[in-house]
Nucleic acid binder design. Structure first.
Length: 598
RNA sequence: GGAGCCGUAGUUAAGUCGGUUAUAACGCCGGCCUGUCACGCCGGAGGGCGCGGGUUCGAGUCCCGUCGGCUCCGCCA
């Protein structure tokens, strides 16, 4: 091990280029690989910006060459040498620096390294659990470094855009108050107030609204949020939002600003020009795509065939309809599915609540289906034309497959919506490149929670409603549409927001409808209700899921690949082994006692 | 809470119908090699099959339980 002494780096390894030709440089980094030819030794030296080849020549620098025998993978070294053009025919076009190499005169081994548990390269085949345990090594891989660099640039360009548009970045508390609605809170015990707890914010929602009451007019924050719910590929217990709020605005203003923000980010970071983002109401999204986060990159839309099948003698359909349900179908073009594949589709349908999945193969000879006998020639024609099915395709003569779901409206849409996404992937209907944005608007304000037997907010309790739906608040709460909007990218929800309620009376009314009593409302959100009574500007905002956006930008399957230190599915950090038990002394100070469940 | 897939050298995997000493590649260690870049060649070390129990003359292979990783449902205003 040697010290740096007076050596200072002249540039990053990845920056070595023909423009430095002949210059003496000092480079520092990690040994990617050593190729020892007995005579010449080649070493690939890696840092954040890339890799460059070092050459140790025994004929020129015998002592340095001798020393180079001892270096191993992941040693941290410094070299002094000259940037040289590689001999003709030995250039490496797959390397950014492949036209040059460093003829090393002097070498310092700054730190030795144990043999890493896996190779530090993008094509590493180590499992994710091993990589998460040694996350610091995993993060040396260029791919993950690139992801985090992109993340940095997205944050930078968001700050730049918002700042230029009059937004102020203002921090809000992390130790805050538990809220009854929404996700499960992470709690933090208060030492100074035994038996009392802070909650980590699920979002800075209340605080950003209060900042509007305070007159800051435009606020934003790139902020961690915490939700104690089960994890998924796109969900971590702590995640980051680009959160913003603006005063004296309506939906158009927030949505327009949001499009500007996204356009700026994608232009700056990806070099991509976004077109105007299309809009679709919740009703349309669910009707055509089955889901409130439609992937509009491919067709395979849902068709309502309730009327076309109403007359049929197929009991599954007629029963569903008589119970107030609907029948919808998707028509899969030109596929030959085996019985086994159809069973697989039915299995998927059942995981989303479908009780069955009726199918019809349409070929040149007409219908082939277990349910064909229930449909006459006229019925079949009507259904075919309704879903756009045809028996033979000019290209290869293959037929279509119609998949039906009959049930309550919600079940039918979910089942076919999820099947649609599954088939889109399976049949490669989804373009690999490109960013397909869509706004979804006019969400219902409430939905009915069967387990709690009450209305709950679809967005959150501070969401305002369409002016024309105001009177339905009394008569038909489920029919009230909200001033909420979601931004969907490639079939994933990447942001959502709303215009807020800005009157104390209306806010109290909403709490009323949600079954949150005056006392409870006062206790939980009294400070917001108080604030609203002191002169509140009309306001609204939106929050974007930074992790999800970066994951889509970088083509990552999971947001774990764009978070430096993510957690596993049981919310465990493989590297630090958090969470862990704590000393009894710590518990005592917090007036806490652990009761282990059987 | 539930469903599915997966746990075998440091890593990734193979392991037949239950049958001697568990196999390969990469990595690691040693040696040789002056134009390699997944360098090449020769040699070597390294695991008892996630953990616990059971069936059996005999278990990496079968059964039960459990722990862990991933994907999904529920959950995520």
């Amino acid at each position: 091990m040697e010290t740096l002494g007076n050596w200072r780096r002249s540039c990053y390894c990845g920056e070595a280029s023909p423009s430095f030709m002949g210059a003496q440089v000092i480079l520092m980094g990690w040994v990617q690989r050593r190729r020892d030819h007995g005579g010449l030794i080649f070493v690939d030296l890696r840092d954040r910006e890339g890799i460059v080849q070092l050459v140790f020549n025994p004929a020129e620098e015998p002592l340095t060459h001798e020393k180079a025998h001892t270096i191993r993978c992941e040693y941290v070294i410094a070299v002094k040498g000259t940037v040289s053009k590689r001999p003709v025919g030995t250039e490496n076009p797959s390397l950014k620096t492949g036209a040059v190499e460093i003829k090393v005169k002097d070498l310092k081994i700054l730190t030795e390294a144990a043999a890493p548990p896996f190779l530090i390269e993008d094509s590493t085949d180590a499992g994710e659990d091993v990589r998460l345990k040694y996350r610091y090594l995993d993060l040396r891989r260029p791919g993950l470094q690139k992801n985090l660099i992109i993340r940095h640039r997205v944050c930078l360009s968001a700050r730049d855009y918002l700042s230029k548009n009059g937004f102020l970045e203002i921090e809000t508390p992390v130790l805050t108050k538990s809220t009854p609605e929404g996700a499960r809170d992470f709690l933090v015990p208060s030492r100074l107030n035994p038996g009392h707890f802070y909650a980590l914010p699920q979002s800075p929602q209340l605080f950003k609204q209060i900042l509007m009451v305070s007159g800051f007019d435009r606020y934003f924050q790139i902020v961690k949020c915490y939700r104690d719910e089960d994890l998924r590929a796109d969900r971590q217990p702590e995640f980051t939002q680009i959160d913003l709020e603006m005063s004296f605005v309506d939906r158009e203003d927030v949505m327009g600003l949001s499009e500007g923000l996204l356009s700026h980010i994608f232009k700056e970071v990806m070099g991509v020009e976004l077109k105007n983002i299309p809009r679709m109401t919740y009703e349309e999204a669910v009707g055509r795509y089955g889901l409130d986060k439609p992937d509009v990159r491919f067709a395979l839309e849902l068709k309502d065939v309730t009327d076309a099948v109403r007359a049929s003698s197929f009991k599954v359909f007629s029963d569903a309809i008589s119970k107030g349900g609907i029948v919808k179908a998707i028509c899969v073009k030109g596929v030959e599915f085996t019985r086994k594949e159809l069973d697989e589709l039915a299995g998927i349908a059942s995981t989303f609540g479908g009780k069955g999945l009726a199918w019809v193969k349409v070929s040149g000879e007409g219908w082939q289906s277990p349910i064909a006998k229930f449909f006459g020639e006229e019925d079949r024609k009507r259904i075919d034309s309704c879903v756009g099915a045809r028996g033979t395709h000019p290209k290869d003569g293959s037929g279509d497959l119609i998949l039906f779901s009959a049930d309550r409206k919600e079940v039918v849409n979910t089942v076919l919506g999820m099947l649609r996404v599954f088939l889109g992937n399976r049949l490669n209907l989804i373009p690999k490149e490109g960013f397909s944005f869509v706004w979804v608007t006019d969400f219902p304000l409430f939905e009915y929670d069967e387990t709690e037997k009450r209305y709950v907010s679809v967005h959150h309790p501070f969401t305002s409603f369409l002016d024309e739906d105001a009177e339905k608040l009394e008569t038909n709460p489920l029919g009230v549409r909200s001033k909420a909007y979601d931004m969907v990218l490639n079939g994933e929800e990447i942001g959502g927001g709303s215009i807020r309620v800005h009157g104390q009376k209306v806010q109290s009314k909403i709490f009323d409808l949600l079954g949150i009593g005056k006392e409870e409302a006062g206790e939980k959100f009294g400070f917001l209700l108080d604030a609203l009574s002191f002169g509140t500007p009309p306001h609204g905002g939106i929050a974007f899921g930074l992790d999800r956006i970066i994951a889509i930008m970088t083509g990552s399957d999971s947001i774990r690949d764009v978070i430096a230190f993510p957690k596993t599915q049981r919310a465990f950090c493989m590297m630090s082994a958090a969470p862990s038990e704590v000393d009894k002394k710590q518990l005592d100070e917090l007036s806490l006692k652990v009761v282990k469940k059987e």
